[in-house]
Structure formats: structure tokens, C-alpha cells
């Protein structure tokens, strides 16, 4: 199979990809910060992880090196574990307090 992207990879493709990564990452951060539900926070984390994965895959393609893809797989695994445990915790919290809004879990300080 012929290499589908060619020169595009290195020039404007790079700008585009990394822009997508950055934007996705910051959207993930914004979701994490601004949404008031525990599950939204979890989804924000997932979005951040995905953005990083894209970056890894892009650079692995750029340098023709499989290491990036392997690492990306590891990140998958980690994300899966983390979601599992996070959901378990959220469920427990919901059972305890009946809500998954973040205000309940904020201790006023400062």
C-alpha cells in the first residue's frame, strides 16, 4: 500500500495535527474544570488522554517508529483501569450522598 499522506505529514499536516491535539486537550481541561458533575470530570480526563494518544501516533508515524504506538496501547490500558476504578468510586459516592454534583464534595477552605 502506498503511503497515504506523504509530504503532508511533515508540513501543514503537522500543524493541523498538533493543533487538534492542543484544542482537544484544552477542551478536556475545560470540561474537567467547568462542569459540575463527577462523570463529566471523568469524561474530561478521557478526552485529554485521547488527545495525547493522537499526538503519540502522529509522532510515531513521523519518525517511522513503532514505539509511539506501543506506548499508546499502554495508555489505553491505563485509561481503562482508571475509568473502571473511577466509576466504582462514583457509584459508592452516589450511594452515600445521593448526588454526583461537585459541590457536595467541596470542603470550604481558605
Amino acid at each position: 500500500m502506498i503511503n497515504p499522506l506523504g509530504d503532508f505529514i511533515v508540513g501543514s499536516g503537522g500543524i493541523f495535527t498538533i493543533s487538534v491535539v492542543l484544542i482537544l486537550f484544552f477542551i478536556g481541561v475545560a470540561t474537567f474544570i467547568f462542569r459540575r458533575t463527577l462523570l463529566h470530570m471523568l469524561m474530561g480526563v478521557e478526552l485529554m488522554l485521547n488527545a495525547v494518544n493522537l499526538s503519540l501516533i502522529y509522532f510515531s508515524r513521523l519518525h517511522q517508529n513503532l514505539d509511539g504506538q506501543i506506548l499508546s496501547l499502554m495508555i489505553f490500558v491505563v485509561a481503562a483501569c482508571e475509568v473502571a476504578v473511577g466509576i466504582a468510586i462514583i457509584v459508592k459516592l452516589y450511594k452515600r450522598t445521593g448526588t454526583i454534583g461537585v459541590e457536595t464534595y467541596t470542603e470550604e477552605r481558605g
Binding site: 497515504p4 499522506l5 478521557e46 508515524r61 504506538q69 499508546s72 475509568v83
Partner: peptide, 24 residues
């Protein structure tokens, strides 16, 4: 997939979209 990481693309669909998002 376009970046020629076909296995990873498949894993993305299966694990991320198919397991994690479903869980959520």
C-alpha cells in the same frame, strides 16, 4: 487509521468507544 496505525485504530474503537464510553 489514516496515520497508518491500523491496530491502534481498531483498539481505539474496541476499547475506548466500545468499552469505556459504554461504561460511562
Amino acid at each position: 487509521a489514516i496515520l497508518q496505525a491500523h491496530s491502534i485504530a481498531v483498539f481505539q474503537v474496541i476499547i475506548y468507544a466500545g468499552a469505556i464510553m459504554v461504561l460511562i
